[in-house]
Amino acid sequence: MSNELHELNLDNISWKSIKNVGLDLDYAVAIPKANASAILQELENSLEYFKGDLSKIKVFGKIYPLPRQQVAYGDPGITYTYSNLTVPALPWPEPVLALRNFLFKLKGIKYNFVLVNKYRDGNDHMGEHRDNEPELDPNIPIASMSFGQERMFVLKHKEARKPGPNRKEIAPVTIKLEHGSVLFMNPPTNDIWYHSLPKRKKMLGIRINLTFRKIHNKA
């Protein structure tokens, strides 16, 4: 995979800045289609996803299967806890390490953890949430890389989700996450905006998404 990334001219990437109340995003299709397709195939061939308890999630006291496949990688000693689930970081596989190095060239940040989600088709999805867990470095953006089926990424301001008269009229922000795209969610986005990947039953292709994070609890 390193060959697919090494030859890319980073100066040719066209970034789009997306801003709103407390929202700060940078988005680009950073990897050309042919390179992105080769990367997707390599990820498909090499990654294995969590099974057993790590493939389930607890919601309001009940246990459900995750509506997607998931695995995590990172530096030694790293764990990540969300929704009452503590995820251990497996050692970096070479294809994912190459993507981390690509992000370092783009942004100058060396991420120490990645959560990989595979959406097998449009029925697989991600519910509304914020990535604001205390072990995350609040000064470092979360970097999201997408390969495969385009899907819609929906962000909602926390004040627009409140019921009754306290709710503020702030429109959602929707982004089409394209094949080979990179999205940086800059601070304070994840403190203020919820995000989700809704079901899209007509979208039949697979999608692999990698969200790179900087975590404090490095051993």
Rank of each mutant, 00 (worst) to 15 (best):
K56W: 09
V59T: 13
G61Y: 08
G61Q: 06
K62M: 14
I63L: 15
P65I: 09
L66W: 07
Q69R: 15
Q69Y: 15
Q69A: 15
Q69C: 14
Q69G: 14
Q70H: 15
Q70E: 14
V71H: 12
V71Q: 10
A72R: 04
Y73K: 03
D75E: 10
D75R: 00
G77M: 04
I78V: 11
I78C: 06
T79G: 03
T79K: 12
T79N: 11
T81C: 09
T81K: 14
T81P: 07
Y82Q: 11
S83L: 12
N84F: 14
T86M: 10
V87H: 08
V87I: 15
P88C: 06
P88G: 07
A89S: 09
L90M: 11
P91R: 09
P91Y: 10
P91V: 11
W92M: 07
W92R: 08
W92H: 10
P93T: 02
E94P: 01
E94Y: 05
V96Y: 09
V96C: 07
V96P: 05
L97A: 14
A98E: 05
A98H: 03
L99P: 08
L99V: 08
L99E: 07
R100S: 13
F102D: 02
L106R: 03
K107D: 13
K107R: 13
G108Q: 02
I109T: 02
K110T: 10
K110H: 10
N112E: 12
N112D: 13
N112A: 12
F113V: 00
V114P: 05
V114D: 02
L115H: 01
V116W: 07
K118M: 08
Y119S: 06
N123R: 12
D124W: 01
H125R: 00
M126F: 03
M126P: 00
G127P: 00
G127W: 01
G127Y: 00
E128P: 07
E128H: 08
D131V: 08
N132V: 01
E133M: 01
E135M: 02
E135K: 00
L136D: 02
D137H: 10
N139G: 12
I140H: 05
P141A: 06
P141K: 08
